[in-house]
Simulated assay, not measured.
Amino acid sequence: MHRSSWSGVSGQGWRGAPFPRSFGCSRSFKTVFVELRVVFLKIGEIDTLKEQYSADTFIQAKWREPALDGKTTEELKRIDLDRFWNPLLFIENVLSETKEATWLTASTNSRAEAFVLERRRVRGVFMENLELNDFPLDVQDLTVTITSERPDTEIDIIPDENEMSGINVQTFVDQQEWRLHEHIEVSKKVMTQEYSSSNRCHPALSVTCRAARRPGYFYWNVFLVMFFISALSFATFAVSPELPQNRLQLSFTLLLTSITFKFVINQSLPKISYLTYMDKYVLLSLVILCMVCVWHAVVTVFVHHGINFLMTLERDVFIAFSVIYIGFHVVFIFWLYFDACKRRRLMKHKDKEYLDFLAKKKEWLEKTKDLNPQSRRQSTQLLHAVHVL
């Protein structure tokens, strides 16, 4: 199912300033507005460890070409568009491309104004800085950033207002681990090229879709297992306090098991300098185990105070540890819901707003299709061409 984009980004289009007629690869004019559209045809594997993802994308750039104004459709087909001005666009965050196809076409609107359309089909691996603070309840941005070799004094990249960016959520490959959101967001940026001797800025447009991780695997295989290991530490109180060596042996075994388990967990995450929610839970569970171990070492001090005093003290300490353990889990669950899940609720709200926007846009198109049937046919033909590719 194909989805269009909804974005709060707005920018001035090419409308407003006439461009002088000029053939050739260079021309003197005011800033050219290039309208950009990106369609995520297929999102592949999202690699958390390497912080990258694979995708199949369709990119369309459209700009005014005054030198072709007044040309007929047949004349436009015979013209070599490579001889004319080009925005020199490229994908800034692509790591490797397995396939890329590019083609140029030209068209005119009802006022005989000519536009050049550059369309690309890019399959590749894209770099993405993953934010893992909320792991495993994280929502990741999957971005395609397109910039130009030309400076921002010559070109400005804006989102296409007529044919907006979109995403095909049905072809998502990694659905067992992630859930792809339906909305698209577009943001403008200004970039500098480090290899350039000049300090000129270059315009860029980032088109972002979002994927929410499905946390079920980590609930059952990390949180639950760690809960069992830490809960078993309370079973060591069943051993007589007069045998602290046996208590310590059992407690240290559980502690070392937890540490080994944490090392195994870290293999699935990149080496980051901050703690995820899963790290916090594992570390706090280790703190509980350490507290139990310390108590079993300290209890030897009270052995000479008599068995009755010792059993009363043991009961009070056991109740205190149990309250702390239960309170920690209650607080942690509320912490997950109100903090870690906050962004997930925000993304669902944006999906709802986006679907409402689509419904209103569809209603508007139904009202205007009889007024402008030609533009509607062109949009349908383009959508069909993308799916055929």
Rank of each mutant, 00 (worst) to 15 (best):
A67C: 07
V298L: 15
L382H: 04
P203I: 08
I333G: 00
A359C: 02
E51H: 05
S4V: 13
E177W: 06
S379E: 15
S28K: 13
F115D: 11
C25F: 06
E161R: 13
A235V: 11
E154C: 03
W220P: 00
V32C: 05
Y354F: 15
R78G: 00
F318A: 08
I288K: 11
T48N: 02
T48W: 01
L41H: 04
A55V: 09
L289E: 02
Q378A: 03
D356F: 00
G24C: 08
R344H: 01
R121K: 11
F302W: 11
L248G: 05
M347H: 14
R315A: 10
F237V: 02
C293D: 10
D134P: 01
L130Y: 11
A359D: 13
L254E: 05
N86H: 15
N221C: 04
W335P: 00
S165K: 03
L95W: 02
F135G: 01
W103T: 10
T208L: 00
W14Q: 04
M164F: 01
F263C: 10
L283N: 12
N308M: 07
R123V: 08
V303S: 14
S230R: 07
V303G: 07
D138L: 02
S110N: 10
S198N: 13
K342W: 07
P270D: 04
R247M: 10
F115N: 08
V169N: 09
L76M: 10
F218E: 15
Y281D: 04
V388E: 13
H387W: 06
P203V: 10
D156F: 00
M191E: 14
V139E: 01
L313R: 02
N93R: 08
A55I: 04
R214F: 02
E185H: 02
V207C: 02
A238M: 12
E366C: 03
P20S: 14
R344P: 00
Q378F: 08
L76F: 05
G11Y: 05
D370L: 12
S379C: 05
S285E: 11
W335L: 03
I324S: 06
L36V: 10
A320Q: 03
N372R: 09
S197Y: 07
A297C: 13
S206W: 02
W220V: 14
T260Y: 12
D56S: 15
H329G: 01
S96M: 06
